[in-house]
Design a protein around this nucleic acid. Structure first.
Lengths: 210, 210
DNA sequence: AAGAGTAGATAGTTAAACTATCCACCACAA
DNA sequence: TTGTGGTGGATAGTTTAACTATCTACTCTT
């Protein structure tokens, strides 16, 4: 299809499509002449993913570029994937500055030790954990061991489910893992908030179950 | 203390402090003269919270204003709090546009029905859930019932812990609930990612436990 | 009396994410 | 074959957010 059809079917304005092409989020079509290029269904799908990550998940253009780059990463074993994902740059706001990686993360190390999990300072998520703990401390709210255990257990339950659902096909697995990481995080957050409200309502006597 | 001391002790530049005063994030000091005002420890603490929410959690100035406004909300029972929190505007990116609240959220309603939880379209988190599901669908990744159950259970476990930890004092409870919602979300996200990596490593044979 | 500090106002800066033109030029229909 | 309109590529402008910088009058302290 031509770019006008891509614009019409995706609902994304022409200048914006051109912008994504310039920024490398959308791969170029196959050139069929000096002033003509052909786009396919994969471009349409890609545009959908881009818009979802930007408008619905709230990622920046730069973060989307990284996420999409990861979906093109070839991995040997499907299970290696989360290692690759972990060594790559974090995708969720707030962005962890480049220099902050690979430095010591004492609070995160303590926490992971307590959970019995591996500690690798090169994992971007370790820096995120460190920041999360620092934010709590700076606000006068501290992170107790009991809370760490409770959250760690819940996170592990979710992660176990995610790994169990990993598609056997490597290419599919990459897309699942990368997009799943970005797409399911807001889901978990929203469900936690709704659970707060539901449990609070029940404890107030609206319904005696649970 | 005078503003210069506040600047020095908080590490926040003077123009920025003035900006936060203008924007209503930081409450004004007690005026002691035409060109003089007095600030206290609560201003210092507030500045710490503001910086943590902006720099570490990644909230926008507008979102911080809403979060801080909520900490000043008086509630009858501590447990009412999460209801209040839910009826308020969402605080985490991506922002849910004002008009989007209170409209039908069919996918979110189905999900909540399946989880056996109350559905109230006025809850901001319902709109967030709807968007999260929409984002997954737009990306070609669908939300299975099994995943919903797994995530819902984990979210509920965390929420139960949060409610159990609610301080008995109403004023403290508000600060705990509001800041806890914002501060502990990045924690849960980081722990999920780290659990992915840890479980993936274990399944690859690095360590046979779990 | 004078210098430093301050409140309050206004203006400037930077970055991100678009959005809008411009121009040459090519393809296809009449 | 000639015009009409869609195209690629380039460049420039817009909008919003979050600061950052000045300016001015005034006042507190020494």
């Amino acid at each position: 299809m031509r770019i006008s059809e891509l614009v019409e079917r995706s609902g994304v304005p022409l200048p914006t499509v051109k912008f994504y092409l310039r920024e490398g989020l959308l791969m170029p079509g196959t050139v069929t002449g000096r002033t003509r290029a052909e786009y396919g269904e994969e471009h349409l799908h890609r545009l959908g993913v881009i818009r979802a990550l930007i408008e619905l998940v709230g990622l920046s253009v730069q973060q989307v570029r990284r996420v999409l780059a990861l979906t093109a990463t070839p991995v040997g074993s499907p299970l290696e994937l989360y290692g690759v994902l972990g060594a790559a740059v974090g995708t969720l706001p707030p962005e962890v500055p480049a220099g902050e990686a690979s430095v010591a993360h004492p609070r995160a190390r303590d926490a992971l030790e307590r959970l019995g999990q591996i500690y690798d300072p090169d994992y971007a998520a370790v820096a995120q954990l460190e920041r999360a703990i620092a934010a709590a401390e700076a606000s006068g709210v501290l992170l107790t061991d009991a809370r760490l255990d409770a959250y760690g257990r819940a996170a592990r339950d979710v992660a176990r489910f995610d790994l169990d659902q990993l598609p056997p096909d490597p290419a599919e697995a990459v897309e699942y893992a990368v997009l799943g990481t970005a797409l399911y995080e807001p889901l978990l957050i929203a469900l936690r908030r709704l659970a707060h409200q539901d449990l609070a309502a029940r404890r107030l006597g609206v319904s005696p179950s649970d």
